[in-house]
Structure formats: structure tokens, C-alpha cells
């Protein structure tokens, strides 16, 4: 096998471009710039930790099916964990959002990082909503019959039927978790590629890096 053949491989080209863009010491750095010294920086990872707990508790709820938690005290407890992990998730994500906005963290070619973060927030709201309408209780009955009007008014109700439990449950446990995890992954990879945004220059004489 010639070297050129190896160089032309899709596999080797992909590896080279990944390693060039995101070398291991950027993917898993052991240092951070000295300005990364504030509690505000922990809310991104807290959001991801909460997402992890949401997914684990959701997986436990999935084992015995969507109505198990109504009749089992263990199921109800896991449901409580699922709910409170979601509360922590949104709580941490909003504090993270305020922090990143305060830092104008989109500067220096990081605008797509902001965009993926914002879209993750929206996907999470939709994931939360489909969870609320999949509860199979009074809450889900009421929320679904109310929410239909908003979604129908956009025309979206023709395809996204909030009164269809099967459809909502599938979105909640398959499509939107995939979206949330993929978006979060992209978001984190972008942060690692570009690094944490540097502070504003107080003397505005600097030239763009």
C-alpha cells in the first residue's frame, strides 16, 4: 500500500482534520486561562450533569413503561427525581445563559457556540413540554388540550398532534433527547475548539486575534 493511498483515505483525512482542529490537549485541557476563576463558570457543567441525571432517571422510568409511576411508590420516586433533575437542569441553564451573556461569550469567532446553546435551550423546552403532555394524568390532559391551540395556529398542529400520546411520548423519549444530547455535544466541542472567551480589553487598542 502506498503512502499516497493512505493519505487519500477518507479515514485518515477525517482523523487528521479532527486531530488538527481538536487535538487531545484541547479536547481535555489540564489548564485554563487564569481569568477562568469564578463560580459562574460551573453552571455549564452543572447543566450537563443535570441532563445526565434527567436521562438516567428517564431510562429507569422507561423500563416498566409510561404508566408504571402511577401505581408504584418506587416509580413515583423516580418520577420525582426526573422532575427535580429537570428543574435543576433549567435552573442551571438559565444561570449559565445569564453568565455567558454577561461575558458576551460569542466574541472571537464563538457566535456558533452561542447559537447552538440557544437552540439547545429551545430543544430542551420542547423536550420538557412533551414530557409534561406524556404524564398520562390530569396535568397532561389539561396541558395538551390547551397547547393544541397555540401549535394549531401555526399550522404545526397538522403534523405535531399534542393530543396523540404515542407521538408525544416518542418525541419525548427518542427524538428530543437525541437532539438535546447532539446539540450539547456540538456546543461543548465548539467551546473546546475555541477555548473560553477572553475578558473584554479595557483599553480598546487591541487588534483582533
Amino acid at each position: 500500500m502506498s503512502t499516497t493511498e493512505i493519505e487519500r483515505q477518507w479515514t485518515s483525512r477525517l482523523r487528521k482534520s479532527v486531530v488538527a482542529k481538536l487535538p487531545p490537549d484541547k479536547m481535555l485541557p489540564d489548564t485554563q486561562p487564569a481569568y477562568v476563576a469564578s463560580w459562574i463558570y460551573v453552571f455549564g457543567v452543572t447543566t450537563m450533569a443535570a441532563l445526565f441525571v434527567v436521562i438516567v432517571t428517564g431510562c429507569i422510568l422507561a423500563i416498566d413503561g409510561p404508566v408504571w409511576w402511577h401505581s408504584s411508590s418506587l416509580g413515583h420516586f423516580v418520577n420525582s427525581m426526573h422532575l427535580w433533575a429537570v428543574e435543576i437542569f433549567f435552573f442551571a441553564m438559565v444561570v449559565h445563559l445569564w453568565g455567558k451573556f454577561s461575558m458576551a461569550a460569542w466574541r472571537g469567532g464563538r457566535s456558533l457556540t452561542w447559537v447552538t446553546g440557544a437552540v439547545t435551550f429551545l430543544a430542551s423546552i420542547l423536550a420538557g413540554f412533551t414530557g409534561y403532555v406524556s404524564q398520562t394524568n390530569f396535568d397532561s390532559q389539561w396541558i395538551a388540550t390547551q397547547a393544541k391551540d397555540g401549535i394549531n395556529s401555526t399550522g404545526g398542529g397538522a403534523f405535531f398532534n399534542v393530543l396523540n400520546l404515542g407521538q408525544m411520548l416518542m418525541w419525548h423519549i427518542v427524538l428530543l433527547p437525541i437532539a438535546a444530547v447532539v446539540l450539547t455535544g456540538l456546543h461543548v466541542v465548539m467551546v473546546r475548539i475555541k477555548g473560553v472567551v477572553p475578558p473584554f480589553e479595557e483599553k480598546s487598542s487591541e487588534v483582533s486575534a
Binding site: A34, A37, S38, W39, I40, V42, F43, E87, F91, V94, V95, W98, G99
Partner: peptide, 25 residues
């Protein structure tokens, strides 16, 4: 919940972050 979020944000801004004195170039 909302008040706690604001409080958390403010605390995160002002609370001293540990280990800052050990930083070396």
C-alpha cells in the same frame, strides 16, 4: 424558583473562587 435563580447568579458573581491565590503562569 426565580428568586433563587437570581440569588444563585449574584452569589456566583461575588463568591470568591477557591484556589485563585495559587495561580502561576
Amino acid at each position: 424558583v426565580m428568586v433563587l435563580m437570581v440569588v444563585t447568579f449574584v452569589v456566583a458573581l461575588f463568591a470568591p473562587f477557591p484556589g485563585r491565590r495559587n495561580r502561576r503562569g
